[in-house]
C-alpha cells in the first residue's frame, strides 16, 4: 500500500512548523511518529496535500515536574513514557497505559502527542487522559491555549484542535495520597488496539471508603468517554465486590458501541463492564495500600 502523493516539510523549530501550518491550513497533516497517520494514508483514508513532519523539532520530548503537574512534550514516545522513572513514581497510570499500546515497535516510534491528537476510537491514551483530568496545550501562530481532557475529544478522530494548531504538551496531575490507578485492556490480538480499555483512578481510605473515582473508557464508542454513571454509583460509598460489579454494569450506559468483525456491539458493551470492573478493583486495591502485585506497567527495558 502506497500513500497518495504529498509535499513534505520537516521544520526544525516549532515556529517554522506553525508558519507552515498557517500557510497550508487544513490541507496539511502533522506527522510525528507516524504510527497513526501513515497507516491511514496507506489505506487512503487520509490524503493530505502537505505533510509537516514535526519529528525533527528539538526540545519537544521532555518529561518534567512543574508544581503539582507533570508536563510531557508531545514528541515523547510511548517507550519513553513506559520507562520514565518520574512518571512511574508520580503518575503511574500513564506508563501502565503506554506499556499496553500496540507492541515494542509501535512504542518505539509512536508519540503521546500524535496518539492523542489523532483520537483513534481504539487508542489507549484517551481513556487515561480522561481519568486523569489531564490538560492538552496547543499552540498556533496566534498563541497558546489549554484544553481540559473533558472537552478535548469531540468525536471519531476529531478533537478540539483547530487547523493551524499543534498539540505541544500534555499535562497530568501528580498522584495524590490515597490514590490508586489501573489500566485494563482487551487487546485486538493482531494490531494490539483496544477492543475495550478501562482506565480507573480511585481515591479511597484504607477501609475502602471511596472518596472519589474517575473511569475513562476507550474502544467502546466512537470516542473515549468518562463512564459517569459508574462513577456516580461508587462515589462516597464503601467498596464491596457486589457494589462495584453492579456499578460497572453501567460502563457503556448511553453509548452506542462500535461493531466490527472482531467484536459485536453487544459484546463490546459486555466487555466494557468486565474491564471497567477489573480496572476499578485493581485501582481500589492500590488506593487501599494492598496492591497484590507490582505495577503491570513494568518496563521491558531502559529507553536509551
Amino acid at each position: 500500500m502506497i500513500p497518495a502523493e504529498f509535499e513534505y516539510q520537516a521544520p526544525k523549530t516549532l515556529d517554522e512548523a506553525l508558519r507552515a501550518l498557517g500557510r497550508h491550513g487544513d490541507e496539511a497533516k502533522i506527522l510525528a511518529g507516524g504510527h497513526s497517520l501513515l497507516p491511514m494514508m496507506k489505506l487512503r483514508l487520509a490524503s493530505p496535500r502537505y505533510v509537516v513532519d514535526i519529528g525533527r523539532i528539538r526540545g519537544m520530548d521532555y518529561i518534567r515536574e512543574e508544581r503539582d503537574k507533570i508536563a510531557i512534550g508531545a514528541l515523547v514516545t510511548h517507550a519513553q513514557v513506559t520507562t520514565s522513572e518520574l512518571l512511574r513514581a508520580k503518575c503511574p497510570l500513564l506508563p501502565e497505559t503506554a506499556s499496553e499500546i500496540g507492541d515494542m515497535q509501535v512504542r518505539n516510534r509512536g508519540t503521546i502527542g500524535g496518539s492523542i491528537a489523532h483520537a483513534d476510537p481504539a487508542a489507549d491514551y484517551p481513556a487515561s487522559i480522561l481519568a486523569l483530568d489531564a490538560e492538552m496545550v496547543v499552540q498556533s501562530s496566534s498563541g497558546k491555549r489549554t484544553i481540559p481532557a473533558a472537552d478535548f475529544f469531540v468525536d471519531l478522530l476529531t478533537t478540539q484542535i483547530r487547523p493551524g494548531e499543534i498539540l505541544t504538551e500534555v499535562r497530568v496531575p501528580v498522584k495524590r495520597a490515597g490514590e490508586g490507578t489501573a489500566y485494563k485492556k482487551f487487546h485486538q490480538p493482531a494490531s494490539g488496539f483496544a477492543i475495550v480499555g478501562a482506565a480507573a483512578r480511585v481515591i479511597a481510605s484504607k477501609a475502602g471508603q471511596i472518596e472519589d473515582v474517575a473511569l475513562g473508557m476507550t474502544g467502546v464508542g466512537s470516542k473515549a468517554y468518562r463512564a459517569t454513571a459508574v462513577e456516580k454509583s461508587l462515589r462516597g460509598k464503601t467498596a464491596s465486590e457486589s457494589l462495584i460489579a453492579e456499578a460497572c454494569g453501567k460502563a457503556a450506559q448511553g453509548i452506542d458501541p462500535l461493531a466490527d468483525i472482531f467484536a459485536s456491539a453487544e459484546y463490546r458493551r459486555e466487555m466494557a463492564s468486565v474491564f471497567a470492573r477489573r480496572a476499578i478493583i485493581s485501582a481500589l486495591e492500590k488506593a487501599m495500600g494492598r496492591a497484590s502485585s507490582p505495577s503491570k506497567g513494568a518496563a521491558p527495558g531502559k529507553t536509551k
Binding site: L43, P48, L156
Partner: peptide, 23 residues
C-alpha cells in the same frame, strides 16, 4: 484491506485533497 481502526473507519473516508502540481 482493513485493519484495526481502518475497519471501523472505512465508511468515513477523510476527504482527499486535490493533487499538488509538482515538487
Amino acid at each position: 484491506v482493513a485493519a484495526s481502526a481502518g475497519a471501523l473507519l472505512a465508511d468515513r473516508v477523510l476527504e482527499a485533497a486535490p493533487r499538488p502540481q509538482s515538487g
